[in-house]
């Protein structure tokens, strides 16, 4: 039997205001556990304003960033933003943080020698500032001298880490309130185990670390054409590191051909080589029944929450309603 789990909605800063507003206004009624906001760096809506508005337009749902790269913001700004969003959401805000994608950072001229150390320092510094401490500290990325938030009351903002590699997974298990994971099923299984082991090593209960799984979900039963799903998967494959691909039982030749085609031509061309097996490995797509079956598979390996979307295309509003209804109806049956 599948234990109770959260189904949430994922949005990104590159989506239209009308779409993100609809999700914020309807998340409670849908029964969503959280709304996670992904930052497409420097594209579309500004993350923190979008997060504030999502909190303002909803009432019960948890709202989290998923994720904000600590490397592109001043640490004092992150601390101040945590306070602000925590107050706006009256405790519903969760700060999803990460170091940032290496390619994105390089485009911005940011090189980090020790990313795990930097992320650990960032999390510790934020927690100390929110606890009301005055800080003197420095790192590769930041420096604070006699800085405090000058707040009378300490606050606690949950921190989730968006991580991938083994050292980062360990860090999340050691110190985060939750982890946001993305990747194929076999990788997720490995990652959840790694986080749980790290939590245990740190003297924590594995239940202390929530595991949020956010993979592309493509409800092809409501107007999203399968070719869109294949295009999304081609892009995901192109972006998946070799270390992760090596863990999978997949047709590697086909995968390499997709990566080469996406790189030399386009995701649309690469999509032509995405077969049903790869579609299933790299995304959760298909009918609502099949998608919820897959959610249950993911929960079965230890995840506590699955995130729906993006891409949002076709009649996505109705698709969300029907998927949430399917999840709810199975809960009632069990």
């Amino acid at each position: 039997m599948i234990s109770s789990y959260k189904v949430s909605v994922g949005i990104t800063t590159h989506m239209r205001v009308s779409a993100t507003n609809w999700i914020a206004q309807n998340a409670d009624a849908l029964g969503a556990g959280s709304i996670w906001i992904g930052e497409d760096i420097a594209l579309g809506q500004e993350s923190f304003v979008l997060t504030a508005r999502t909190l303002l337009q909803s009432h019960q749902v948890r709202v989290g960033t998923g994720i904000i790269p600590v490397s592109v913001h001043n640490i004092s700004t992150l601390a101040r933003t945590g306070v602000t969003l925590n107050e706006i959401g009256q405790g519903r805000f969760t700060f999803g943080l990460g170091i940032g994608g290496i390619q994105d950072l390089e485009k911005q001229g940011i090189h980090i020698k020790k990313p795990v150390t930097e992320l650990r320092k960032s999390v510790n510094t934020l927690r100390m500032l929110w606890a009301g401490e005055t800080i003197d500290t420095s790192s590769e990325m930041f420096s604070l001298r006699g800085f405090s938030l000058e707040k009378d009351n300490p606050i606690r903002v949950p921190i989730f880490l968006g991580v991938r590699g083994p050292q980062m997974l360990k860090l999340a298990g050691n110190m985060a309130d939750g982890v946001i994971l993305s990747g194929p099923f076999d990788y997720l299984q490995y990652a959840i185990r790694a986080v749980d082991e790290a939590a245990k090593e740190a003297g924590r209960n594995k239940r202390d670390v929530e595991k949020v799984v956010w993979v592309p979900t493509i409800p092809t039963f409501k107007g999203i054409k399968e070719k869109v799903a294949r295009r999304v998967v081609a892009l995901v494959i192109a972006d998946t590191p070799d270390a992760v691909l090596d863990m999978l039982t997949i047709d590697r030749e086909r995968v390499d051909r997709i990566r080469k085609t996406v790189s030399s031509s386009s995701p649309k061309e690469g999509a032509k080589f995405v077969d049903d097996k790869l579609l299933d490995v790299f995304s959760i797509s298909g009918t609502k029944e099949h998608m919820v079956d897959r959610f249950e598979d993911v929960i079965g390996i230890g995840a506590t929450e699955v995130v729906l979307g993006p891409p949002f295309s076709g009649d996505w509003r109705q698709a969300l309603v029907e998927i949430f209804h399917e999840v709810e109806s199975r809960r009632e049956t069990t």
């Binding site: 500004e46 923190f48 304003v49 997060t51 504030a52 508005r53 303002l56 700004t77 101040r80 933003t81 306070v83 602000t84 969003l85 107050e87 706006i88 938030l149 000058e150 707040k151």
Partner: peptide, 9 residues
């Protein structure tokens, strides 16, 4: 302390 753009919203 607080982040102005979020307060503006």
């Amino acid at each position: 302390v607080r982040y102005a753009p979020a307060i503006a919203a």
